[in-house]
Write a protein that binds this DNA or RNA. Sequence first.
DNA 1: CCCGGAGCCGAGAGCGCTCTCTTTTGATCA
DNA 2: TGATCAAAAGAGAGCGCTCTCGGCTCCGGG
Lengths: 331, 331
Amino acid sequence: MKRPTLEAVAARAGVSRATVSRVVNGQSTVTPEIRDTVLRAVSELGYVPNSAARSLVTQRTDSIALVISEPATRVFSDDRLFSMVVRTVSSELESSDKQIVLMLASSPRGHERVERYISSGHVDGVLLLSMHGADPLPAALNRMGVPVVSYGRPAVAVALPYVDNDNVGGAGAAVRHLLATGRRRIATIAGPQDMIGGQDRLTGYRDALRDSDRRSIVAVGDFTRASGADAMRQLLEDDPALDAVFAANDEMAIGALRALRRAGRRVPDDVALVGFDDIEAAAYTDPPLTTVRQPIVEQATAMVRLLLTPAKDRVTDHIILPSELVIRESA
Amino acid sequence: MKRPTLEAVAARAGVSRATVSRVVNGQSTVTPEIRDTVLRAVSELGYVPNSAARSLVTQRTDSIALVISEPATRVFSDDRLFSMVVRTVSSELESSDKQIVLMLASSPRGHERVERYISSGHVDGVLLLSMHGADPLPAALNRMGVPVVSYGRPAVAVALPYVDNDNVGGAGAAVRHLLATGRRRIATIAGPQDMIGGQDRLTGYRDALRDSDRRSIVAVGDFTRASGADAMRQLLEDDPALDAVFAANDEMAIGALRALRRAGRRVPDDVALVGFDDIEAAAYTDPPLTTVRQPIVEQATAMVRLLLTPAKDRVTDHIILPSELVIRESA
DNA sequence: CCCGGAGCCGAGAGCGCTCTCTTTTGATCA
DNA sequence: TGATCAAAAGAGAGCGCTCTCGGCTCCGGG
């Protein structure tokens, strides 16, 4: 009752193991007649190649790891981002018949697990989702000689191929939109400065303001809703006359929205508000949030392409995709 | 520059391959002194066991597949369901040091891929998310001798261990809530009757009404928003005096909400509305939707437990978990 | 003093496959 | 008809590991 092997198929078809292997792997140096005989034996016995044996000799596994390296609390702060990435990566890999191994590395123990797993040759490549600049995992994976592509620019120290959205440009577009609609005192709630996204979005804000000779007004949050509310209160205290806010992500924007309402400011009449990411909830706020959308599908597609292109054939080791301003009612 | 093998470690430590294997696999029949020597050699060489070679002989892979068998359009209709399941399963498997292989089987080609993959011995078990009763995949997987646990009761023909939420009880609770708040003409927008969830929720509705001698008013949708709106219009036409609706899922409830508003009915004043699932968007409707929550985390946990328990040690082959009524403002 | 048994370690087979190398086949041409 | 060569099939090594089995050592008991 155990699974048939190559040997069994060979015996049944009256040929050698090697010939069956050739047929199964689609080599053309087999007489059509024998080929048919073998294929018949294969389907009669219900033969399926043993993947462990195969990858033991080929050194390939036909699967890639999708590593999500974030504290458990944050990973899924945006379920849609996650599910869109997974869906896109999955369908993109389908054509090359590779599988996804999903690894959530939330704790240091998780990191160690991931490293062990990858270095035991389980996968042919790694897609790394890690928003945190200080994460040691990218460097570690890079060291073990497995192809790795990162979602989001990794910390400067690591030379890793990556795909990112245009954080600087997106933030700039948000600020320019505020300027274009006549806002004069534009503050920002920046993200944590140990994350690349946090840094770049602040840079985009600063650059855009500098171009227009406006003064920058900055508070720093940590990408959580509560920190957005706190930062907003801080900003209102510092500069009660501000008339616009660019929050570095939607969660903080939602926090800011509540803080503004509690402070008696109307949005967008008194204060215009723009977020970043276009998470699900952004469409349901009151008023619906104007925000910057990441091109998630395109990013995921690009990651897979980059991963599947052998390093030596690569034209570039990073791809930056444009972000799009989604104008709703908050600005 | 290639990875060191057991042989290399053995040579370095001056022992046999078998002894190194014993140490690496934590067997106790090794003299502490030798054990230390071996461990030193392991870490000096950076040895990591080759997983393909190992599973070739052990017949285990230490990974399980999470198969999502749905048309691509629906799979992620609820991103939160998906991400919570993934997260829970992942952390639940962490303790037994198993990995998740994620497979989205949206097309017939995808199904074939999944079957081939599973039957090639890539995984030790399968968690199956398939909402569609007529899905041929459960039966196919069941046939190949791999442990499978299904999320949601599979079609009657298949004897598969499964975990489900109490669809009948949840629907009943929703209807009883409507009765308790004084509603008298309670209609339902049922789900497709070729899905188990659709059937059971309708059963729950009917049972609860029968107990109270109320007449049942039924329209059937297909779990999409648009079908919910259509069904609602139909119901209003059939019985303009209805004062409550139980929709078999939140998507249809949201569609119904719009149809009600367009028809000039106030919710909940004129018509009370209850959904099912408690999807993300349910909290953001106007008014926020009263609905029935599935215990997603508990279900995912139970699935893993069931899968990891050897069939012969199992007390039961299915687990039904209670659903909880979440009362918001629509009813 | 010898035997039996327990505890450790090594030898070696074998998991199921791929791939190189060799042999066989069969067609071609002088 | 026999030599030549290309194409096709077979033989066999080996991928890196686990695990059974047998041998060796060291102890206590008869």
